[in-house]
């Protein structure tokens, strides 16, 4: 593994046209870590899937203006970890995120096939984080 462990992050407006920018940034970070082309393509798809889920959920809340999605990538315990977070004021957002992912059946089956781990969590300030992990190649 190369020594590129410093976190990299990008914040995008919660709009579909910005998803491509997020996947390019995270793909470049994965490339620095030594993932091969096939794995980088997988990571691009995974980032696209979770950003899409985040944006669709915010869209359902009806407040896309001035909303954003933050994507962070870092290495932890030899895993590439990608956090896709977005703020929400709704108490039930964690459940809604689960539902949103399940409704996008194809997206969920893609995610679980190409990433080692997919988690959904909520922070104390009501942000939802979709966390993806994939083992960094030696």
């Amino acid at each position: 593994m190369n020594d590129f462990g410093q976190p990299t992050s990008i914040t995008i407006p919660a709009k579909p046209e910005y998803v491509g920018i997020a996947r390019l940034v995270i793909a470049a970070f994965a490339g620095l870590l030594g993932f091969d082309n096939e794995a980088v393509e997988d990571i691009k798809i995974a980032v696209s899937e979770v950003c899409t889920s985040a944006i669709l959920q915010l869209h359902k809340e009806g407040r896309l203006e001035n909303r954003s999605v933050e994507i962070s990538a870092y290495v932890k315990n030899r895993d590439l970890v990608i956090d896709v977070g977005f703020a929400t004021k709704e108490a039930a957002s964690l459940e809604k995120t689960h539902t949103q992912l399940k409704e996008r059946d194809l997206g969920m089956s893609v995610l679980t096939s190409i990433m080692d781990k997919v988690e959904i969590m909520k922070t104390r300030n009501n942000a939802v984080i979709l966390r993806l992990s994939k083992r960094v190649p030696r």
Binding site: E41, S48, T52, R104, L106, G107
Partner: peptide, 12 residues
């Protein structure tokens, strides 16, 4: 060059 489940959904 790239397709995710949004594209698959449209095809289905």
């Amino acid at each position: 060059e790239f397709m995710d489940s949004s594209g698959l959904g449209v095809l289905v």
